[in-house]
Design a protein around this nucleic acid. Structure first.
Lengths: 213, 213
DNA sequence: TAGATTGTTAATCGATTAACAATC
DNA sequence: TAGATTGTTAATCGATTAACAATC
């Protein structure tokens, strides 16, 4: 899946930054494959896919690699996002450290509730009817959608019409991407369910192994 | 990947509940495959994997299917979780509607900051030194980890020692699972990065197609 | 019976890995 | 030169799909 390579590129970058801070100048595909628990072939293949080349015998130059990965991940410039729906979750994400650490800047929040509007805050919270103009003027491409469940589909459609190309959807109902609007569904309940399922199935395996032995 | 089948089981359940509310009594693998955008073979294979059988010609009984899926997903009983780290994100998750809708109950929050402690709240917020006893007494298996980045690894280790078997990790640094403690890494910055990457690569494809034609 | 749908096996597809020639 | 690591091709693996016999 295409998503997997993006994930790995990001992981490579994080590892490389640590290695760089330790003073390493070169890195080999074996180093990265060890760190990520994958084969060195895959590391080299990923780099080849991204037109990143190394030196036979000499490996890859850490600094060049980081710079190249940053460009690929769009980190050579600040990535602006907006948050649509400023309830508890929306507000929490507005101050999320992980975004700031990764060059992602929350340009504004939007809400229908007048009581939540505050256009003077460090990250302004604006009324939804300002959405279209803001997206156009600021060239916003990505929005986080944290409105209540029943407002999700309407707002999603609105965002699409405003020309948004990427949406991180926190609603429980998964939404499919369209050619001009990618949607990533983050369902926290689903992630929790996975954990319970994994715990139960691991326990069952342990049991049956116990019986077998 | 094993995760994918869990995701699909959860999706089947959601679709089935909608179909049931529309009055449908039976469902065919083609119905579900259409809804999920997968092949009907996969639907039948998933059910076979879970020892769910239908009737040749008659399909599957919606009610039985939902009940079976609920059991598989552990939804026949309430699933209790705790939230470790009650900053903005932790507090937002404490009231997350998606959890309540899916039979997931937040049993308590934990924090090191005395100012945040409130053992009388509907969902009590307790000091971290009560963690071990609480987990033991309440039989908690799953924790959401929403502490600051630099406290993540320490707290993770502590949770493992307390006998937690599943952790949803919101820190940027991915953590690997161990045999007795499954970790799901939810990196919101990574999800946003994926969106930007997808947008850029889609735009490039559109361009090159334009050139080619 | 004829028709439709499951359950299951074989085929396909894509992602990952192994292997190794090229070469620094 | 000898040794080590890349770049790339072939092999493997797992997940998904196609196909079809079984059967309701």
């Amino acid at each position: 899946m295409e998503h997997d390579i993006i994930k790995r590129l990001s992981q490579y970058k994080k590892i490389l930054q640590k290695l760089q801070s330790l003073g390493l100048v070169r890195v080999f595909s074996d180093n990265l494959s060890d760190a990520l628990g994958i084969s060195s072939s895959l590391v080299r293949k990923d780099f080849a896919t991204c037109n990143i080349t190394g030196k036979r015998r000499g490996g890859y130059v850490v600094e060049e690699l980081i710079e190249r990965l940053n460009t690929l991940l769009g980190k050579d410039q600040e990535q602006q996002i907006i948050i649509v729906g400023c309830g508890k979750l929306g507000l929490a994400l507005m101050n999320h450290k992980g975004f700031a650490n990764d060059q992602i800047r929350v340009a504004a929040g939007f809400d229908v509730d007048p009581a939540r509007i505050n256009s003077d805050a460090p990250v302004p919270i604006l009324p939804v009817d300002k959405l279209a103009a803001f997206i156009r003027n600021q060239g916003i491409q990505v929005a986080l959608l944290t409105v209540p469940e029943d407002a999700t589909l309407t707002m999603l459609e609105h965002l699409r019409q405003c020309g948004i190309h990427g949406i991180l959807n926190f609603a429980a109902v998964p939404v499919k991407s369209t050619p001009d609007c990618h949607v990533q569904n983050v369902s926290l309940a689903l992630e929790v369910e996975k954990l319970f399922y994994l715990i139960v199935s691991t326990a069952e395996n342990a049991n049956s192994e116990g019986i077998a032995s």
